[in-house]
């Protein structure tokens, strides 16, 4: 076995790119869950973002406009979820699953004319001296802007939840919506905003797939990335920094297994192909065995002011 042909520098660079879609989706879902809402529609919102971002990107010839549209589309779809679960008090699990199915179907419909079309793609940023640092430059400073936006989003969410009054209110709503309500906070309004934010993030993640990583539109192209994002939120015990670790770990295993194959590693290919999912399951098992979940206490419970 000759693994010397795997370049660690290029590997890290690839991992950053391959982790970005799930990073977006997971950090959005983290905020939603921190507010006490379980939205299982991440996959549906991602793929809707992917198709809308792609369509708008192609038509306007600007990937950035595509990303904005994708965020809008993801938020629009999540708005349906928010209305159903927050005002009509529908079951969150069922509504979320419905959202995924609706998103998959809707995206196939919108995407029909865009199959096989080439899209404009985001240029790699030139960060001047940073990009020229040997090794580190290639690893971290020669990506397109969305890779950094994703990381920045994690930092912002962390800072928001930890240091701001708004973050405190959001967490209070997620931990005990009755207490938050008694204190005079608008539980439903806070949750609505959190759900919209989660939808927008999932949309961005989807658009990153169709506009940068592939870049092409194909039906069902998210291929379960939304579910992985949901798993990563649990994996991270609802902490922003661990989302970053989880996303890079998953992205890392995905890329590494292909690299191992390309380098001719003597490991059964079927095992390598399944490894990202096996590792996700393994980590989830370890976390639940440890017992410390850190899940928001009101997660998945409906709230009505009369209760």
């Amino acid at each position: 076995m000759d693994l010397s042909s795997i370049s660690p520098i290029l590997l890290v660079a690839s991992i950053m790119v391959s982790a970005t879609p799930i990073l977006f989706a997971a950090i959005g879902e983290l905020v939603v869950e921190k507010a006490g809402v379980l939205n299982l529609g991440v996959e549906g919102m991602m793929i809707t973002g992917a198709v809308v971002g792609f369509a708008v990107g192609v038509n306007t010839d600007s990937p950035l406009v595509g990303f904005v549209a994708a965020a809008g589309a993801g938020a629009a779809l999540s708005f349906v979820f928010a209305l159903l679960t927050q005002y009509l008090l529908s079951n969150q699990v069922a509504t979320g699953l419905g959202l995924t199915l609706a998103g998959l179907g809707l995206s196939a419909l919108i995407g029909k004319p865009y199959e096989g079309v080439k899209s404009p793609t985001l240029p790699k940023l030139d960060l001047g001296p940073l990009s020229d640092i040997p090794a580190l430059g290639t690893m971290f400073f020669r990506h397109d802007i969305m890779v950094y936006v994703a990381v920045l989003m994690v930092i912002l969410v962390w800072a928001f939840l930890k240091f701001t009054r708004g973050g405190l209110i959001l967490r209070a709503v997620g931990e005990s919506h009755d207490s938050a309500h008694a204190l005079g906070y608008k539980v439903v309004r806070v949750r609505m905003i959190a759900i919209l934010f989660g939808g927008a993030c999932a949309g961005l993640g989807g658009a990153y797939l169709s506009l940068v990583r592939v870049p092409q539109w194909t039906e069902g192209m998210t291929a379960g990335a939304g579910w992985i994002a949901l798993a990563i939120v649990v994996f991270a015990s609802w902490r922003p920094w661990r989302i970053l670790i989880g996303a890079y770990l998953f992205g890392g295993v995905t890329v590494l297994q292909l690299n191992l194959q390309a380098a001719g590693a003597k490991v059964p290919v079927a095992l390598l192909s399944a490894s990202p999912y096996l590792i996700t399951i393994l980590v989830l098992v370890i976390i639940s065995a440890r017992g410390a979940h850190g899940a928001p206490a009101s997660l998945g419970r409906s709230f009505h002011a009369s209760s």
């Binding site: 370049s7 690839s14 690299n259």
Partner: peptide
């Protein structure tokens, strides 16, 4: 292990090129 999965095909091509 797929006939058609653009994301995976793109990743595979990148892995080969990086090697």
């Amino acid at each position: 292990y797929t006939w058609f999965d653009p994301a995976k095909e793109a990743d595979a091509a990148r892995a080969l090129i990086e090697n």
